[in-house]
Computed example of a mutant assay.
Amino acid sequence: MVDPLAGQKDEEDCPKNWQLAGASVKNVEYHRELVSFADTVFGFLEDIETSSSENSSSSSNDYQDDFGEDENRNFQDNKVFWEQQDQLLKETLFRTTSIETKIRHATNEALKELNLSGKQCICQRPVAGNVDNGCRDCLQREICNQLLNLGYNCAICKSKWKTSKNIPSGEHTYLEVMDTTSSKKGEIRIVIEFNFRAEFEMARANEEYNQLISRLPEVFVGKAERMKNLIKILCSAAKKCMKEKKMHLGPWRKQKYMQAKWLGTCERSTPASLPGRYTDRQLRPRTSMLTFDLLENLSGLHRTVVEVA
Rank of each mutant, 00 (worst) to 15 (best):
E12K: 06
K240N: 11
T107Q: 03
C144P: 03
S269G: 05
P271I: 02
V308K: 11
E193G: 02
L212Q: 00
F37H: 07
Q146P: 00
I99M: 03
L148P: 02
N108F: 05
I103K: 03
M227C: 12
G43R: 12
T265R: 13
T50E: 11
F200P: 03
K79F: 08
S214R: 00
N72S: 14
Y209P: 00
Q87F: 06
Y209E: 00
E49D: 09
F81T: 05
S183W: 08
S182T: 03
N130E: 12
Y278M: 14
I99V: 13
N61C: 10
T40D: 13
S288G: 14
R125P: 01
P275R: 03
P271W: 10
G7Y: 13
D132P: 04
C14F: 05
E193V: 06
L290A: 11
K185F: 08
A21T: 10
V28Q: 06
V131W: 09
L20T: 13
T287L: 13
L212P: 00
E193C: 03
N74Y: 09
D65W: 09
K232D: 11
K246V: 13
E142K: 15
K254L: 06
R32L: 11
E33D: 04
D132H: 11
V35M: 05
E176R: 06
K162L: 14
C14R: 15
I192R: 06
S169T: 07
S36G: 11
I103V: 10
R204S: 13
C154Q: 02
V191F: 04
R284F: 07
Y209L: 02
L283W: 12
D3Y: 12
R189H: 07
K158N: 13
M1N: 06
L88C: 07
R286Q: 15
L20P: 00
R125H: 08
Q76I: 13
L150P: 02
E109R: 05
E207D: 07
E11N: 14
H172Y: 15
G170T: 08
L212I: 00
A238H: 03
G129A: 01
A260T: 05
E54V: 04
Q8K: 13
D10E: 14
R226Q: 15
I48P: 03
K165Y: 10
E100M: 01
C266R: 10
D65L: 10
F75L: 06
A272M: 09
M258G: 03
Q64N: 10
Q140M: 15
E91L: 11
S236W: 01
V41F: 08
R95L: 11
I156Q: 08
V219S: 03
Q282S: 09
L294T: 05
